[in-house]
């Protein structure tokens, strides 16, 4: 699936949830099931700046697509980064850099985060997309 197809399927999934609690439960589940980042990559260099909880992100190229692993000490944050990775992982770096991530507003994610967390979300998106830019320049 391309990035927009994945976004559309996430939007469809979230339409099934009636209450925001259910969406949080889903994010928490995603967070708990996020493949754990290799400890070697949990370095200060891999910390995303601008997040109040700590978020580590590691990216590497694999056959022309970008693979991400991540972790956070807060489980909802881990769920959010897991959702972003689900959309962007396995895609070409140029596509990641140029993606319009409309699903974030469509599922109401931003409005249900505290302002500090919403800022953290912006930082995560910026970091993921700048990795896409860096890789597309390098490869």
């Amino acid at each position: 699936m391309n990035i927009d197809q994945i976004q559309d399927s996430i939007i469809e999934e979230f339409e099934l949830f009636e209450q925001w609690f259910d969406k949080y439960e889903y994010l928490i589940d995603l967070g708990k099931n996020l493949p754990v980042i290799d400890d070697a990559y949990k370095t200060d260099d891999n910390l995303i700046r601008g997040c109040q909880s700590r978020v580590w992100l590691h990216a590497e190229m694999n056959n022309g697509t970008v693979q991400f692993t991540a972790d956070s000490d807060a489980v909802i944050t881990r769920g959010i980064i897991a959702l972003l990775i689900r959309v962007l992982a396995g895609q070409k770096p140029g596509d990641i850099a140029n993606a319009q991530l409309y699903f974030i507003d469509a599922i109401g994610l931003r409005e249900h985060l505290s302002s500090t967390r919403a800022n953290g979300l912006v930082s995560m998106v910026n970091t993921l997309q700048s990795i896409g830019r860096d890789f597309s320049r390098a490869h």
Binding site: D73, A74, V75, I76, S114
Partner: peptide, 21 residues
């Protein structure tokens, strides 16, 4: 076993305003 932000986020959904951080 929890991060204060996660507890704060769930309390917020319940209409309970606390500070975390």
């Amino acid at each position: 076993g929890t991060h204060p932000f996660d507890v704060g986020a769930i309390l917020d959904q319940l209409g309970i305003a606390v500070r975390t951080g």
